[in-house]
Nucleic acid binder design. Structure first.
Lengths: 340, 340
DNA sequence: CTTGGCACTCTCAGTACTGGAGTGCCAGCA
DNA sequence: TGCTGGCACTCCAGTACTGAGAGTGCCAAG
C-alpha cells in the first residue's frame, strides 16, 4: 500500500513533535498544533495505517505514537527538507575555524564546534595520511646512531620517527639521503610513495643502499601506521543530557565511543565530500550503537575525501538541523585545509 | 577530643564497607564483617562520637552511616595503608607502555591504561614544553615566502609552525639561520630559550637580523602557546557506571571535564614527581567538581616534573588502590620518557 | 471518506500500609 | 568507667490500591 500525501504529513508532524517534546504524540495534540485540516478521528485512522506499515509504534496501548527507525528513515529520505543554518551559526563556524594555527588545532576546533552546533557527540577523523601528498621529508641527525625522520604532508600533518643505525652514519650520507628522498617523494601521493621508494632503491649509489633501506622501512611503516586512524571526540556530555533516551543506559554507548576502532568504523567509510550518510538505529553495524543515529560525511580539499566527520545522537534527533550543520562544517574544514 | 584506636578502626571499617557496597553501613553488619572485638552497641556509641566530630553522617535518621569528606580525608591521611599492585597489573603497565612508538602514543596509552586500572576517569597532561630541553630546531623551506619551523624537544615532542617571509628568503640564509639557531638552543631548557634567542640577535650578522627576528617571534610564540596546555582524557564511560553516585547528574561533571581549562587546573599544579595529591569532595577548587575526588601526581624524567596526570572519580573510591595505580603509572611513564 | 461519540485501556501520581534495618537510650554488669 | 543486651522509636522502601487523564479503536451517521 502506498501512503497518500496526508499520511506523510501526519508522519512528518509526528516526527517533528516527538523530537521537540520527547513524548509520545497523540492524535488530538497533533490536530491542534499542525494545520492538517482534518479532525483527530481522521488522524487516528491514518495513524493506524502508519502503524500497520511499521512507521510508528506505541510504547503501550493507549499512549501516543513514536516514530520507528523505519519512520525516521522515511522522514529523512522524503520529508525532512533542508534547514538552512542561521547567520549567527555561519559566522561562528567561520570565525572559529579561521583562527586555527595548525592541523591539531583545526581538528580540535572542528570537533568542538560540531558538538556545540548540534548539541550532540561529534566525531572527527584526522586527515588520512595515504590520501594526502608529501610536502617534505626531513632527516635530522640526533647522534651518530640515530636519525629523526620527519614527514610533512600538504594537509599540514607532521609525523616523526626515530631511525636507528647501529653501525653509525655520516653527516654527508644523511645529506645525500635527504635530497634523494625528497626528490623522489615531494609532491607524490602517500599512497604512491612505496612504489617511488622502491624505484629509488634501484637507482641510488650502492654504498648508500643499506642506509636507505633502513630509512625506507621506517618511512613505509609510518605510512601504514595507526596514525592514520586517529579520531577525536567531543561533546560526550550531551549523551547524558537527553536523559530519558537510549534504551537502557548510556554506559555501553560511551564505552563503545571510546574505542577508536568503533569510531573509525563509524566515520571512516568515506566516499566523496558531497555525500552524506545517515544511519538510523538498527541500521548501524556496530552492535552497541543500535538505538542511536549517526550522521557522517567526508571532508577534503576539493573532490578528494581526506577523512570523515560526523555526529552521534539519539534516533530522536533534529535531522534537518544536524544534517546542515555537518554539511556546513565539513565544507569549511575542507576549504581551510585546501588553502593551507 | 581525640579519637582512640578503636574509633579509628571503626571509621576505617566504615569507609571500606561503604566503598565496597555503596550502601550506608550499620553497626550490626560492621560487627559481623570486621573483627572489632566489641558488640554492635559499643560500635553505635563510637559512631555517635564520629558523627559528632563530623567524620561520618546519616543520609536520614535510622539509616546506616556514610563517611563525610572529612572522614575520607582522615582515612587517606592516616588509615589507608598501601595496597601494592598485583603482579598482573605491573606487567600490564610495562608491556603496554613499552610498546609505544612516539610521544602521542605514550600519552594515549598512558591515559587508557590509567582509566582501565582504576576503572575511573583518567587525565594526562602532555609534557610541558617549557620544562623540557631543545633537541633540534629544523627549518624547512616550503617556498620562497614560507618556512616550516619544527621544534623537537628531548621528551620526543614535536611542534611545527609556518613562518611567512613576505619579501622572500634565500636557501643560503635559511641554512645559516638553521645552524645559528641550533647552536644557540640545542640542549637548552625551553624556559631559557627566550634569553638565548635575544643573545643570538645581538651577535648575528646584521643582514640576517630581520629574518632571524621573524623566525624568533614564531619560535617564542610556540613556546608560550596553548600546546603547553594539552590534556587528554579517557574512561569517561566509568562516570556513568557508578550510577547512584554523584549528587545530582553526571552531566555537569562531564561538561566540566571537557573544558581543557578545568582539566589543566586539576592536573597542572605540579610539584615534584614524588608528591601525590588527593583532593576530596569540597576540597576541590573547581565548582562543578565538588562531590568528586581527584588523585593527581606529577611525572617526569628524574626529579624535574614535566607534567601532571591523575584520576577523577566519586569521593567514594578505592583510595589505596587508586593511589598506587597513579603512582606506578607516573613512575613508568617517567622512565619511558627519560630513556627516550 | 470524514466525523463525533463512546467505551475501553493503560499509565502515572498520590495515598495508605507494612516490614525491616538501624538508631538512641537505658539499666545492668564487669 | 566502659561494655553489653534490650527495647522503643524512626524512617525508608516496597506493595497495593485508587482516580484522573490521555489516548485509542470502533461504530454509526453525515
Amino acid at each position: 500500500m502506498t501512503l497518500d500525501e496526508r499520511k506523510l504529513a501526519v508522519l512528518r508532524a509526528i516526527v517533528q513533535d516527538y523530537v521537540n517534546t520527547e513524548e509520545p504524540v497523540g492524535s488530538k495534540s497533533l490536530a491542534e498544533r499542525h494545520q492538517l485540516g482534518v479532525s483527530p478521528a481522521t488522524i487516528r485512522n491514518d495513524m493506524a495505517v502508519l502503524e500497520e506499515e511499521g512507521y510508528i509504534a506505541q510504547p503501550h496501548t493507549s499512549a501516543g505514537r513514536i516514530p520507528t527507525d523505519k519512520g525516521y528513515r522515511l522522514f529523512v529520505d522524503r520529508l525532512a527538507g533542508i534547514k538552512p543554518l542561521s547567520a549567527a551559526e555561519r559566522r561562528a563556524i567561520q570565525t572559529l575555524l579561521n583562527g586555527a594555527i595548525d592541523l591539531d588545532d583545526v581538528v580540535t576546533r572542528t570537533v568542538r564546534l560540531l558538538a556545540q552546533l548540534t548539541r550532540q557527540v561529534a566525531v572527527v577523523q584526522y586527515p588520512s595520511l595515504t590520501r594526502s601528498a608529501v610536502r617534505h621529508v626531513e632527516l635530522v641527525q640526533l647522534n651518530v646512531n640515530r636519525l629523526l625522520l620527519v614527514l610533512i604532508t600538504d594537509t599540514g600533518r607532521v609525523d616523526q620517527r626515530t631511525v636507528e643505525f647501529p653501525s653509525g652514519i655520516s653527516d654527508d650520507d644523511v645529506n645525500v639521503l635527504r635530497s634523494a628522498v625528497n626528490n623522489a617523494l615531494v609532491g607524490q601521493r602517500l599512497s604512491d610513495a612505496p612504489t617511488r621508494v622502491e624505484e629509488l632503491l634501484d637507482t641510488i649509489a650502492p654504498a648508500l643502499r643499506p642506509a636507505l633501506t633502513t630509512v625506507a622501512s621506517v618511512l613505509l611503516e609510518t605510512l601504514v601506521e595507526r596514525r592514520e586512524e586517529r579520531v577525536v571526540l567531543a561533546g560526550t556530555a550531551n549523551l547524558t543530557r537527553s536523559t530519558v533516551d537510549f534504551r537502557g543506559s548510556v554506559f555501553p554507548i560511551l564505552e563503545a565511543l571510546e574505542e577508536q576502532v568503533v569510531l573509525l568504523k563509524l566515520v571512516g567509510e568515506v566516499d566523496s565530500p558531497s555525500m552524506l550518510r545517515v544511519r538510523i538505529g538498527d541500521e548501524n553495524q556496530v552492535e552497541e550503537l543500535r538505538g542511536i543515529s549517526v550522521v557522517t560525511t567526508a571532508y577534503g580539499a576539493g573532490d578528494t575525501a581526506l577523512a570523515g566527520l560526523g555526529v552521534v545522537g539519539p534516533t530522536r534527533m533534529d535531522y534537518p538541523g544536524t544534517i546542515s550543520a555537518v554539511r556546513a562544517v565539513a565544507r569549511y574544514v575542507g576549504e581551510i585545509l585546501a588553502g593551507n
